[in-house]
């Protein structure tokens, strides 16, 4: 474990917590893409499938973190699609999730380190996570704005994988550990946030709201 990965995981936890708090406190999921949250839930379930296969005692933080990610993302989907369904902005959350799931699944079968079920599920989860934020970014571009709290969520969510890139550089240098699939997907994922990062740093930090040119 290195500092970059630690802060990456903390940033990821913060993102999940910020979104849950936003929906719970405002009792509304306006401006939140339910599809992105569904895709994240699929990512966690397919990536941490080992939790379901052998229920080893919860002796280490990794297992606890995995359980937190899975339960928090499923609970977020429950809030969006059931509890606060009336506030779900289905019209603007219109990016076709199948256009992300099918290519990720296809690519996972073609490019993977080992052709076995667990590895392919993990690879699928990595590829899907790289593009899972697209429906959320698409929704913001359609509505032309993002609530400040949603911007903080996106910043934390984008920072998590950016910090993981630093973690991979660290591990390459000190542990000569390389996982090309995770690195390439992580770089693609972080690049998708660049536009948002620019808006966040130039606007939200100064207390302005993000409003995209309609």
């Amino acid at each position: 474990m290195n500092i970059f990965r630690l802060f990456g995981d903390l940033s990821h936890l913060a993102a999940i917590a910020i979104l849950l708090l936003k929906i719970w406190k405002t009792r509304s999921c306006a401006g939140v893409s339910g599809k992105t949250q569904l895709l994240f839930a699929v990512c966690f379930i397919t990536r941490y499938i080992d939790l379901f296969l052998h229920f080893v005692s919860l002796y280490n933080t990794e297992k606890v973190m995995k359980l937190i990610y899975i339960s928090a993302s499923v609970f977020t989907c429950y809030l969006i699609f059931f509890k606060f369904k009336a506030t779900y902005d289905g019209n603007h959350d219109s990016m076709r999730a199948e256009f992300l799931i099918v290519p990720a699944a296809g690519l996972a079968c073609l490019i993977n380190t080992k052709f076995d079920a667990i590895e392919i599920l993990w690879t699928f989860s990595i590829y899907l996570e790289a593009v899972a934020i697209l429906p959320q970014l698409f929704l913001i571009s359609k509505t032309g704005e993002a609530e400040t709290i949603t911007s903080h969520y996106l910043f934390a969510q984008g920072s998590y994988r950016a910090l993981y890139i630093l973690n991979w550089i660290y591990r390459y240098h000190y542990e000569s550990h390389v996982d090309t699939i995770a690195i390439v997907a992580g770089v693609v994922q972080t690049i998708l946030y660049c536009d948002f990062f620019y808006l966040y740093i130039t606007k939200v930090v100064k207390g302005q709201k993000i409003v995209l040119p309609a």
């Binding site: 990965r5 995981d9 990821h12 080992d50 296969l53 052998h54 990794e62 973190m65 995995k66 990610y69 080992k114 076995d116 667990i118 590895e119 993990w122 993981y164 973690n167 996982d179 995770a182």
Partner: peptide, 10 residues
Amino acid sequence: DIMDEIKDEL
């Protein structure tokens, strides 16, 4: 064994 498949990162 399947457990050694498990990645060491989240």
